[in-house]
Design a protein around this nucleic acid. Structure first.
Lengths: 186, 186
DNA sequence: CACCCTAGAGAACGAACGTTCTCGATGCAA
DNA sequence: TTGCATCGAGAACGTTCGTTCTCTAGGGTG
């Protein structure tokens, strides 16, 4: 089997298991079973579990970026592009594997004992905030709008995760509309 | 030593350690050292580590409720009472032990493997949302305001935790003011 | 066929954990 | 003082985990 196929099989299974049950709850043996890759090959492709965790986060970051921007680009006006973020969240929350933001979860579980994980979470959130800031600037909005919209998106994710329902995306979208209108007036 | 003193010493130390480094990263031996309570006495007061975790969450919930409502009651107008939530967050974020919402963290780390922890997190968040709803109703605001303000508070907590700075409270407070004004007009 | 490289299955190892047990010291009561 | 209950310190036990090692089978190449 080609190395790249092995890596992708491992990272896909690791992401699913780690995201669904937490990193520390999933042992290497379970990852071996789920990815159908023997421990020997697994350790020939990845130096350690910690390295797999970091690659999983990088992969998840790329998927998030692609998913959000695809949805945003489908919208036409600058205002609708900003609101499209919450439509993406709404769809995500409806997925029954949804269990909150993987970076928040990883940060909560490992951030205080793994500087690398903490840094990945910071980078991910900073990247998203910068993206929102670009969209807000393109809409001609006040600079204060972007952090407000980012906070709404964060809050929607944790609220939906803990409540187990997706309605937070609706509330966040409505709030975002009000904030956008206010930021365009000033 | 009186049992109640032992229990409080253990729960205080457990809260500090679990909150600061995560539950699974802190062993019973470290809790014994930090609380200065021997393992024997510890296990005579608590049946298991899992039970301690649940009591820590209950204790933290009570402290949160007391802290928020104390701050809210100091405000005079209904509008300022709603905004006082974010002032409380602002103070909390400035505490250098701040590491996000303990319930979000516990949910992320243990929610998928401990139904009790997941339930505590749900109850905590539902209680806060109900509290915000009462404050919003007292302000005569539209029913859609409360979930919006709750989401802002959630988002501010995770944003501040991961960024390591407290400015999210300022952004959330400003957004809350705009949303309150909009909800009072309609 | 003979050779060797790689693979899979799983044992093995050392560490860490939650929990219980042992042992000796301490303090109080009769 | 003697007896007894309680306590702290830490060893012990069984389990789990991350990682490495062993052994065997297979499959391509000379």
């Amino acid at each position: 089997m080609v190395d790249e196929q092995v890596r992708e099989r491992v990272l896909e299974a690791a992401d699913r298991l780690y995201y669904g049950r937490g990193v520390q709850s999933v042992g290497m043996d379970e990852l071996r079973l789920a990815s159908r890759v023997s421990l020997k090959v697994l350790y020939s492709e990845f130096p350690s579990k910690a390295a797999i965790v970091l690659e999983v986060l990088d992969r998840r970051h790329a998927l998030w970026d692609a998913g959000v921007s695809e949805r945003v680009e489908r919208a036409t006006t600058p205002r609708e592009k900003l609101l499209a973020i919450y439509d993406y969240l709404s769809d995500w929350f409806a997925d029954d594997t949804f269990r909150g933001c993987g970076f928040i979860n990883a940060f909560a579980e490992l951030g205080s004992i793994s500087p690398d994980v903490a840094q990945r979470a910071r980078d991910h959130k900073a990247g998203f905030q910068a993206y929102v800031a670009r969209l807000a600037a393109a809409a001609g909005a006040d600079a204060s709008l972007a952090p407000q919209l980012s906070i709404l998106a964060e809050g929607a994710q944790t609220t939906a995760a803990i409540a187990g329902t997706g309605e937070a995306a609706i509330h966040a979208r409505r709030a975002a509309g009000i904030l956008i209108d206010a930021a365009m007036r000033s």
